[in-house]
């Protein structure tokens, strides 16, 4: 009887863990990596408006990428903030669906929430994030769901960090 009760408890516990996992974004996959600045959390794929509104106090400057071919729909926009940039895609100015495509950490005044900043050793990245999904001479990439966290490398050191949306 005790064995049966123990078995029941184990099954119940496993089901409990399993249902917790379903709360994660990406239908059971690990949660996407996010970047956080001044209490504002953001990740590629998020709508840009609430994030930019929350960061308005930092007066982000923006630059629109003009297409070489007139008439192509949509435009890329970069918003420059202290230590990082947010790159978005929108149909036109004021587009409510403007989406974050890329977050680029541009200097070591900011770091990932896990504590890695530009200038870190490649090994420190692996120690923090584990085995990468992709490893080349030039980068370590960690894919989660529809996003990827990338550490650009030169001579074994992190030279850039970016959160990218996957197409």
């Amino acid at each position: 009887m005790k064995k049966f009760a123990a078995l029941l408890l184990t099954v119940a516990a496993l089901m409990g863990f399993s249902s917790c996992g379903e709360d994660n974004p990406g239908n059971g996959e690990a949660a996407a990596y996010s970047f956080s600045f001044d209490g504002v959390e953001m990740r590629p794929g998020d709508k840009a408006a609430p994030v930019l509104e929350a960061l308005a106090g930092h007066s982000p400057q923006s630059s629109v990428k003009a297409s070489c071919l007139s008439g192509l729909s949509g435009e890329d926009v970069t918003y420059v903030l202290p230590g990082f940039r947010i790159q978005t895609f929108r149909q036109q100015e004021g587009d409510a669906d403007e989406q974050i495509r890329l977050i680029i950490l541009s200097d070591d005044s900011v770091a990932t929430p896990e504590g890695v900043a530009i200038g870190a050793e490649a090994q420190a990245v692996k120690d923090t994030y584990g085995a990468p999904s992709e490893e080349t001479e030039f980068r370590l990439a960690y894919t989660r769901g529809s996003m990827r966290l990338v550490f650009g490398l030169r001579e074994g050191k992190v030279t850039n960090i970016s959160y990218e949306v996957l197409e």
Partner: peptide
């Protein structure tokens, strides 16, 4: 031109 910004990181140069 108001901002001097570098391009996005290269996956392979």
């Amino acid at each position: 031109k108001e901002l001097d910004i570098e391009g996005e990181p290269l996956s392979d140069p």
